[in-house]
Amino acid sequence: MSTNSSLIHVDNVSFNFHGLKVLQDISFSISPGDFLALIGPNGSGKTTLIRIILGILKPSSGRIVLMGEEVHQFTQWQRIGYVPQKATLLDPYFPASVREVVAMGLISLKRFPRLLTRQDESSIDKALDRVGLKGLKSRRIGELSGGQQQRVFIARAIVNGPDVLFLDEPTAGVDADTQARFYDMLAELNRKEGLTIVLITHDFGIITKHANKVACLNQRLFFHGTHEEFCSSQAVQDLLRGEHHLVCHRH
């Protein structure tokens, strides 16, 4: 668990909320190029852990090192992309065009007063092209379907060329076909462009198909390892007994 070669290092992190232990002694690392699936039951602390890693919440104890910097001193936000869970709960009447939403992702690259240049417009076009939505630049985001909106949020998260992309249950409420296309797109970003992906999901199909690392969380981290170790882990099999049947193969 070296911090030197890892992009993100979670070191003995605990988090208490109103006296309740939400996370206890979590330690693991994420390396460049990983596609890490973070799984666990509802209320297991997955979203809390992501929010701690991103500095939105302060841990009760322990530390987070992002790209060699302590998270509270971290300044290289342009290297991070984040698609929060509530992106799926977007206000459908919010007056933002697709272009404006993607442009928000450029903010970490820009100096005050952060005016957009012609090159920025080209970056927005490229990001939308990568998620297959270039033709919808001028549309109001609320007019798009859930799957299309999620692709816009991915475009926003990758428009500044980040090294790591965090996604918190990005396909909640999205139909199965759209989910499959969405995850294929993520896998392509991971494999072809080397984008490190940290994905919170309940979908075991994604884990077996795309992820190369898996972390199982339920207040404590009771598994962290490769996809193959996950598939052969007795602890995981015991945990999932009766709920899921794991068919492990990677594409």
Partner: peptide, 23 residues
């Protein structure tokens, strides 16, 4: 408002993501 336009729009749309973009 003009000077902080981009920040205010991001903050209004999605404060959590704005924070992780260094806003």
């Amino acid at each position: 408002i003009v000077l902080f336009y981009q920040e205010f729009v991001f903050l209004t749309f999605d404060p959590e993501s704005a924070r992780t973009s260094g806003v």
